[in-house]
């Protein structure tokens, strides 16, 4: 059952990342990977909310496997993030590459804190 929850979450998260990435990338012309940044921050917000809700006892811990390990895990990505950063660096946009890393890490971590705080405020 645990495996099924993770697999279903993963099967939902990856296409959701692809579609979100596409939607964001179609709305700007720059080389900066806003799409991946968006899914990564959204996934971090989601996992923060979920962790807060589970800790507050408002959500069953099985939801962690479906929505946390599966959905948010597959919605977010490290491989695309790192490859896009490499692309920026190799195309001469070193500043944008560094900004992508700094903004992704700080915004992702901040989104977890924000989600966690929001869940605590709602159910804590």
């Amino acid at each position: 059952m645990n495996w099924l929850l993770v697999l279903v979450g993963g099967a939902l998260g990856a296409p959701l990342r692809y579609l979100t990435d596409r939607a964001v990338q179609s709305r700007h012309e720059s080389a900066f990977p806003w799409g991946t940044l968006t899914v990564n921050v959204l996934g971090c917000l989601g996992i923060g909310l979920l962790t807060g809700a589970v800790l507050a006892g408002a959500a069953p811990s099985e939801l962690r496997l479906l929505l946390g390990t599966g959905l948010c895990g597959a919605l977010t990505t490290y491989s695309t993030f790192s490859y896009e950063t490499l692309r920026l660096a190799e195309s001469g946009a070193a500043l944008q590459a560094a900004a992508n890393v700094g903004v992704s890490v700080l915004a992702g971590f901040g989104a977890v804190l924000l989600g966690d705080a929001a869940a605590s405020a709602a159910w804590g």
């Binding site: 692809y18 996934g43 971090c44 946390g68 597959a74 490290y78």
Partner: peptide
């Protein structure tokens, strides 16, 4: 590319768990 790059490797790696682990 959609299967391996977006699906398998994108699903294998995770930014959310990385950030949440740091918070934990």
């Amino acid at each position: 590319r959609p299967f391996v790059g977006v699906g398998v490797l994108g699903g294998f790696t995770t930014f959310s768990t990385y950030a949440a682990d740091t918070r934990t």
